[in-house]
Each structure stands twice: as structure tokens, then as C-alpha cells.
Design a protein around this nucleic acid. Structure first.
Lengths: 212, 212
DNA sequence: ATGAATACTGTTATTTTGTACAGTATTTAT
DNA sequence: ATAAATACTGTACAAAATAACAGTATTCAT
């Protein structure tokens, strides 16, 4: 059985997915026909039948707006919008910072598509609301959401969240002559030379700011 | 206005949510009536009207299976993620900037959930890649993605995208003694006092930055 | 070259679905 | 006490939506 999509079938499948994302419901056949300027809904019905046969769609018969896209997202990734990921927003990073993330400290989630983010997030990606202006020199403001990745080796000059005195702060990671320390990007804040071990909780990969 | 749910309304709201999770579509009014053994669909319509009025539901009229649960996040936060919206990324804003958006200038899209964005985007929301450092004083860097809203009245001090000499630039909108002008947030750039009409293309509502 | 799949137009059922109108009874707030 | 909201029954209608039938033209694989 052939399972690859034709150009037209792909367009229609993508339209259905986009409509579902935007409106929360699948489009009706007439809405699809209208979008593609078909004068006959039969054209749509034909395409839907083909998409069902090939396994990309399912849904009850005789039931309005009941289409469900069941194709593996890996197929559409390059075509449609990139996949949406939910990044947990941790108001405060717990001291231990275990890899598991089911603790009650999740305050919400930030959902972005991976392309916008620029990196493909892992299960160790998390968001953090920035408090204070110690990183103003890097143009990171109070109230910004920092997206961080846990468990990667920070390169010199990258912004990291570090655990100091049981409180997590955003700092620039600096490596000088093999020795690592943390630099605040605001003259009013001191640099931090680690007394013992330097606990890096995450490397900043993106930032989101709300205005208004 | 009262916004709390009665026992019955809560049951119906939960049934709708459960149906959406299980089938991917909202139930029809008759399906709801059938589940609760109502002999009249009017009973369902009454409940739905109440739920809409109280702000727990929305969806188009005269449209099958188009219910959307939009309950205040405080109640359902762990259950429903807020809606994802696709904001078109316009590399360059065309001079005319018509309301229609089907031009070929869309370079991609930025997909974020509405809560993260902080505002509910309309069809006139768009994204723009920031070029240059004329807004560095507001901590907006080269390469950042600015999310803007077209067609709203800018308040003084807000960041706007304006059309100057057929090129779109980001500036601070300043209103002084009833006269509006544009301020660059970088001493190396001059302020712009509009010669003729000031064309505001959009007001910045959010910002996304990619690092690494 | 030939049948199958694709990509449509045009018309016509038939079902599904939301909404409206007219009631009744109970609870709740003012 | 009285109006408003709640929670229904029952009937009816029109719009919305799926589906089916009869065609045409093109592409594609065998």
C-alpha cells in the first residue's frame, strides 16, 4: 500500500492541523473547500478519503468536525510548523535539583516551537523568571523568562543559572586560566568566585520578555 | 457577576473536557444530553449558555463541536495548556502593510502559547527580527524577535515599529505636549520627528531572544 | 496501453446539530 | 415578596455538515 502523500494531500493535512491549532476544532469540509477555492465539497471528501486510507486521518463518520490527525509528527516537522514543546516554569529552583521534575514547584509552563527557540529542548529544559537586574549588562531584565538547559557543559561567556547559598542566580560563566567563576553583568553586583564546587543548574538558551 | 459553577454546570464542563481528551473533539449537544439522560437538548443549551456567560466556555455559534474550555487557569491549570498561536514572522514589513497577510513575505512563524505571551494575539499580531542596536537602551538586541500588534493605539513610552523612508525601525513612541515623535534608545542614533504623518505599524508586546 | 489513483465540478440526498419558542418547577439572591 | 437564575420537558426549524452519485481530465505505475 502506498502511504506517501501527494502535494495536495499534504496541503490539506497541514491546513487541518493549522486549523486545529488555531481554533481548537477540525475544519468542516466546506471550510476546507472554501480555503482551497474548491467549488465542490466532493473534492475535499475525496482527499479526506485518501488521507484516511493512507492512515493520516481518522474520526467518526457522519460526525461534524471530528477529524483527527494521527500521523507521526516526525513526518511533518520540516513541512509544518516545528513541534511545540512545553517547558516547565520553575519559580524557584529547588536546592537539590533532581532530574525528575514532578515536584510541586512547577508554576506553569512556557510553550514554544523548537525553531523559535533555536535549540531542541530536552527533558532537562526549564524556564525561570528573572529577578533583579544583575544581568542588565547582557540585556536581561527583571521579569524576563529565561529558558535554560540543565546538564550541558557551559562554555565561557555563556549565561548560566547557578546555585549560590541555596539561591539561584543568573550569571555569566567565565573561564580564565582553567579557573571558572561567575560574573555579574552589573557593576553594582560583585563577581562570585566559588569557594567550593560550582553548581551550574542550567545554561541559558533563550529568553522571552512580555511587554505592556 | 457571578462566576462560580453549580454542581451540574461543573459536571457538564468536566464531561466536555473528558470528551475532548478522549475523542479529540468537543461533544455535540445531543451527545451531552444523551450522557446525562436529558430528554431535551434545550437543557444542554441552557447549561452551555450559562457556562459561556460565566466565561468557562467559548466557541463559534452555529458551529458543530466547536466548544472550547477556557476556564480560568487557577482552576484547571494542571489540565489544560493554554492555546498555541502562530505568529507570522515578517522579515521585512511591506510598505503598504495591508491587513491581509497572504503575501509572500512571511519568512516563518513563531509559535507560543498565549499565557507566555501575556496578551491574546489577534490576526494583526506579527513578529519581526530586530536589526541593529538602536534600541539597546531598552535592552532589545540585534537578532531578537519582537512580537508586535498592529492597529492598536500606542501609549507614550511603548516600543513601536514605524515606517520611515520605506524602512521599518523599532523606536520608543513618545508623546510630549500633544506632539508625537520617535526616540531611539541609543545615543548614536538620532530621534525622529515625523515630517508628515507618523505611520505606526505595530506596538511591541513581547520579545524572544535566542542564545547559543 | 491500460487500469488505478489523483484532482477536481456539479447536484442532490440525508443526517447532524445548534438554536428558538413555549412551558413547569425549584432554588437563590435582594 | 419577588425577581432572577437554575434545571429541566417537548416540539420544531433552519443551518451546517457529511455523504453519495455521475461525470471529466490528468498523472502515474506496470
Amino acid at each position: 500500500m502506498k502511504t506517501s502523500l501527494t502535494r495536495r494531500q499534504g496541503e490539506i493535512l497541514r491546513f487541518i492541523m493549522a486549523h486545529q491549532r488555531e481554533h481548537g476544532t477540525s475544519p468542516s469540509q466546506r471550510e476546507i473547500a472554501s480555503f482551497f477555492d474548491f467549488r465542490s465539497v466532493t473534492a475535499v471528501a475525496d482527499h479526506l478519503r485518501a488521507l484516511r486510507r493512507k492512515g493520516y486521518l481518522e474520526g467518526a463518520a457522519n460526525q461534524a468536525r471530528s477529524l483527527r490527525v494521527i500521523a507521526p509528527p516526525s513526518i511533518f516537522e520540516p513541512i509544518v510548523r516545528s513541534r511545540i514543546v512545553d517547558i516547565p516554569l520553575l519559580g524557584e529552583i529547588p536546592a537539590g535539583f533532581a532530574d525528575k521534575r514532578d515536584s510541586g514547584s512547577i508554576e506553569g509552563c512556557v510553550s514554544v516551537d523548537v525553531d523559535t527557540l533555536g535549540v531542541k529542548p530536552t527533558s532537562r529544559t526549564f524556564a525561570l523568571e528573572v529577578r533583579g537586574d544583575s544581568m542588565i549588562g547582557r540585556h536581561i531584565m527583571h521579569g524576563d523568562y529565561a529558558i535554560l538547559e540543565h546538564g550541558v557543559e557551559p562554555r565561557g561567556g555563556e549565561v548560566v543559572a547557578a546555585l549560590i547559598d541555596n539561591e539561584s542566580t543568573l550569571k555569566t560563566f567565565v573561564k580564565e586560566k582553567g579557573k571558572a567563576y561567575l560574573r555579574a553583568e552589573n557593576p553594582r553586583y560583585p563577581d562570585l568566585i566559588p569557594a567550593g564546587e560550582l553548581v551550574i543548574q542550567g545554561v541559558m538558551v533563550a529568553l522571552i520578555r512580555r511587554c505592556r
